[in-house]
Design a protein around this nucleic acid. Structure first.
Lengths: 148, 148
DNA sequence: ACTGGTGGTTGCATAGTACAACTCGATGCG
DNA sequence: CGCATCGAGTTGTACTATGCAACCACCAGT
């Protein structure tokens, strides 16, 4: 196996390991906001409000899954649904004040956890790593960070 | 926010995005081997056989979860259980031939999918990215952030 | 008005998970 | 030795996330 294969193999293995860990403990750290709920709220904040269908498409989730997640978030008072006056099929979703607050809290906690692992990393490495992740995840080198 | 914060923020977001995507698509890609099953088989291969308790500890899973996963893998003919002659409480788990074969197949497919996203990456970037991931995941045994 | 397409909800099934209670065997202590 | 304790694993129960399919409501084009 050449060096390229070795690097690909390592990347595959490490990404797998990460995904498994994230999944295994997704609910433990932020009992009030699951990983999926967190990313949905994050997307609402970034996008400034969107439709359930947009969330489903963006996250490759079934619309029924999004529907239920959104219902839960609404029950929890973190998002609001507004009827689109232009199209009565559509519900435009947006964060409530409480939603914004919780999202900010969880973001801070998550970022702290990430930063924890990144202590001692030189600034240059942080930036390169961030760049690689963006490039890997998106093909989206163009998209703004956290686009997703 | 300074550049360091921005990089940390991006890393956090991208790792989260990746975890979510992996989770969403884990089952679709390899219907016969879920992400968790895959990692368990992988660990058995690396370790050359271990106990269910070791798997649980390594992956921060409840022993009941591992028990059921292992049962499923055994039913599928991918792992074997052997009584430890030293301690009759213990079952040493190991891959069967079929388990090895499936694991190899899925590894190839997963690696191909990863390589797909890494086409056009210069060798130097591949190696650096792999190194960053190892470093990020590695110190993490204690408090994996995606893990939380 | 009919037809087809889109946004969303609900019923049903499944996977993965945790926690608690349990069994069985090992280990240690009086 | 006999009993208490510990460790490995299993099983019962419950919950969450998820997908698919069926369905309803609405929009738009013909």
């Amino acid at each position: 196996m050449d060096a390229g294969e070795t690097a690909v193999e390592t990347i595959q293995r490490e990404m797998t390991a990460f995904a498994r860990r994230a999944r295994a403990s997704a609910g433990r750290m932020h009992p009030e906001l699951s990983l999926v709920s967190y990313t949905l709220l994050g997307h609402l904040e970034e996008s400034g409000g969107c439709r359930a269908t947009d969330l489903a498409a963006h996250y490759a989730l079934d619309k029924s899954t999004v529907s239920r997640q959104v219902s839960a978030l609404e029950r929890a008072g973190l998002v609001e649904r507004r009827q689109d006056p232009e199209d009565h099929r559509v519900q435009v979703l947006d964060l409530t004040e409480a939603g914004r607050r919780i999202l900010a809290q969880v973001t801070v906690r998550r970022r702290a956890a990430v930063r924890e692992r990144l202590t001692d990393w030189p600034q240059e490495d942080l930036e390169r790593f961030a760049g690689y992740l963006v490039r890997y995840n998106g093909g989206s080198a163009a998209a703004p960070p956290g686009d997703d």
